[in-house]
């Protein structure tokens, strides 16, 4: 039976909600999932690399690098994501310098502005998570690795990074969920991801509660999958810390 068939078999209204319309709009809203996932995946991956650099700058010992990374994290954690998105998408167009430069084709697109804002935002939060992970590595472990003759990259690759990643995994899972939720804000700059499509449908039929409910359930489902994946990774990398629930 096609989805249309199922929708017609439903009652038109239930508990004051237009059930048929909800059912009809589900496939349209599902079409927004690829863009949402794409935004999350791209910004999380670039953001992670960025965060690595920021975290390393923070512990590098250089005063200048330390100040740069501190102010970056301070700015992006201290302001709402919405301001960051608007500042890049609407704000940069104020400057003729940018409008005439080779960067304009990039900043003109809501898509790239959205990705840039999300990336910079997650970069700041992830940098703090990584820093916390790095600082949680017991000093004795580093000393014993050094006494075995490890140093530099080898020390990081074999001892510090594995311990830090395991420590940081739960917090990073939360950050992933925050990012999934964060992508809904780029609907304000015309991107048609799940929330954008929802707003589009609502503009047509004026049934905000119904459509946003369905959209909310889709987000809930995505976030459920994310928590499952993180849980799996935690079980895999820190089996000795897991309790069997």
């Amino acid at each position: 039976m096609s989805i249309d068939g199922i929708c017609i078999s439903l009652p038109k209204e239930y508990l004051g909600l237009k059930v048929q319309l909800m059912c009809d709009s589900l496939p349209k809203l599902l079409l927004g999932i690829p863009l949402t996932i794409e935004l999350v995946a791209i910004s999380l991956s670039i953001g992670f690399v960025l965060a690595m650099c920021i975290a390393l700058m923070r512990i590098s010992g250089s005063r200048l690098l330390n100040i740069v990374s501190r102010s970056y994290v301070f700015y992006f954690r201290g302001t709402p994501l919405l301001v960051q998105i608007f500042l890049i998408y609407y704000g940069l167009a104020q400057f003729d310098l940018i409008k005439e430069s080779f960067l304009w084709p990039f900043f003109r697109e809501a898509y790239w502005c959205g990705i840039l804002a999300l990336t910079l935002n997650t970069g700041a939060y992830t940098a703090e998570i990584i820093r916390g992970g790095l600082q949680s590595v017991p000093h004795g472990q580093i000393e014993s690795a050094r006494s075995m003759g490890m140093s530099g990259i080898l020390l990081y690759r074999r001892v510090i990074l594995p311990i830090a990643f395991r420590q940081a995994l739960p917090a990073y899972g939360n950050e992933m969920i925050l990012m999934v939720k964060g992508t809904s804000l780029v609907s304000t700059i015309t991107l048609m991801e799940i929330t954008g499509i929802a707003r589009h449908i609502i503009a047509k039929y004026w049934t905000p509660v119904e459509i946003f409910l369905i959209a909310g359930i889709i987000y809930l489902f995505i976030n459920y999958l994310v928590t499952r994946i993180v849980r799996y990774a935690e079980n895999r990398y820190t089996p000795y810390l897991q309790t069997n629930e």
């Binding site: 939720k181 809904s184 909310g216």
Partner: peptide
């Protein structure tokens, strides 16, 4: 706690904004 923390804040605000008004009206 699960639902509110798993749905984007923007959606929760939209839902409550329209939901409260509709509820009060009905």
């Amino acid at each position: 706690t699960t639902v509110v923390r798993g749905i984007p804040e923007l959606l929760v605000i939209y839902l409550l904004y329209f939901g409260f008004n509709n509820a009060v009206m009905s």
